[in-house]
């Protein structure tokens, strides 16, 4: 066993989470390798430091504050829950006040080619999530109550796109989030847990909330997200982060998605942020999964797509255990922030 292999197994070794054969191999190697012994001690020291952090106690008023907020929620809870999000959805004036959950379940074929579109010029949020989608896949849009996506006949190649509205009020001293969850929307977390997809076909982030907001509140910011899980591919071997200054974040996103697709990259998620009172999206965050082999050339293209404000790349070491679990060529996960 090589030192690099041993190093990857030191963490489960410390937890006694290795097969007996592996355990013996590691022990035998450690006897004769000073370098790996030092690695083990450093890892152990790190764990000890973490475990040595003291427990903290919640503030004295924690439970009372929570109780008050819950009472408020109970009082505001509409008698007919099912109608609540709908009523709110139509009642809010115009675009800025709208928020909803969209869950779009569709066949795998038609997704890659086109960037998501989030915003409608009309009233409220749009159901049109993808432009130029040539897929014959089924699209189901559901506001608010969001049925759990069902498995398609034919297997696991099913993805979930979720749009998520989040409205935040500008109240610095307040601990209020003003982002109250629609109960039925949230309940799917549990269902998704139960349905945890097989590795590689999973739902990356649980679409979990449809905000319920009093009509008299003035939302100041709004975010929309479209997300889907990783779509197969091998282990994540690299993580990279890039912040670019661009003149038009939306346009830049479209252009990057197009280029990324031509390199075989896939869009995992995208989010847009805009400032109250403005139609313009002022920040876009894009998450891409890129075949590791294509990372180099595409990274250059990405860096040329705007003025680089920040970037970093981390390579991730994998243990032998990973390769059994995640099959396929290794991939890089890239998060790109496009800022105006």
């Amino acid at each position: 066993m090589q030192c690099s292999d041993v190093c990857e197994l030191l963490s489960p070794y410390l937890d006694g989470f290795l097969k007996p054969g592996e355990q013996k191999q590691i022990e035998a190697h450690l006897k004769n390798c000073v370098g790996c012994q030092a690695q083990l001690e450093e890892l152990r020291g790190t764990i000890n430091l973490l475990q040595g952090l003291p427990e903290v106690t919640p503030p004295a008023a924690f439970r009372n504050e929570l109780r008050e907020r819950l009472q408020q929620i109970e009082q505001e809870r509409p008698t007919d829950r099912a109608k609540a999000p709908k009523r709110a959805f139509y009642k809010w004036p115009g675009f800025m006040a709208a928020a909803a959950v969209l869950v779009v379940a569709l066949g795998i074929t038609g997704v890659w080619g086109s960037p998501a579109r989030w915003f409608d010029s009309g009233e409220g949020l749009i159901a049109q999530l993808f432009s130029g989608n040539s897929s014959s896949g089924t699209v189901a849009v559901d506001n608010g109550k969001a049925d759990r996506p069902e498995k398609q006949a034919g297997g696991t190649e099913k993805i979930v796109f979720a749009g998520k509205g989040e409205v935040k009020e500008d109240a610095p001293e307040s601990t209020d989030f003003n982002m109250l969850m629609e109960p039925d929307g949230l309940s799917r977390e549990d269902e998704l847990l139960r349905d945890a997809a097989p590795p590689g076909a999973g739902v990356m982030s649980v679409p979990n909330a449809a905000p319920e907001i009093a009509a008299d509140e003035e939302p100041r910011q709004m975010y929309m997200e479209n997300m889907k899980g990783r779509m197969g591919g091998g282990a994540v071997a690299r993580e990279a982060h890039l912040v670019l200054a661009v003149t038009d974040p939306e346009q830049a996103m479209n252009s990057i998605v197009e280029k990324a697709n031509s390199y075989g990259a896939e869009v995992i998620a995208s989010h847009g942020a805009l400032v109250a009172g403005q139609r313009e999206v002022d920040t876009v965050v894009l998450e891409l999964q890129i075949p590791l082999a294509k990372f180099g050339p595409l990274w250059e293209v990405l860096n040329d797509s705007g003025r680089v404000m920040d970037s970093n790349i981390n390579d991730i070491l994998h243990s032998a255990a990973d390769t059994g679990e995640e099959q396929g060529s290794p991939v890089a996960m890239v998060v790109i922030e496009l800022k105006k």
């Binding site: 919640p58 503030p59 929570l66 819950l70 601990t175 989030f177 109960p183 039925d184 847990l193």
Partner: peptide
């Protein structure tokens, strides 16, 4: 830090409360 932890913990419990109807005891 404590300020953010307080907000986040409250938010966590509110989500829990609101998600309870969907908790069917499988875990």
């Amino acid at each position: 830090n404590h300020a953010d932890a307080g907000d986040l913990a409250q938010e966590g419990f509110i989500r829990l409360y609101q998600a309870l109807p969907g908790f069917r005891g499988e875990s």
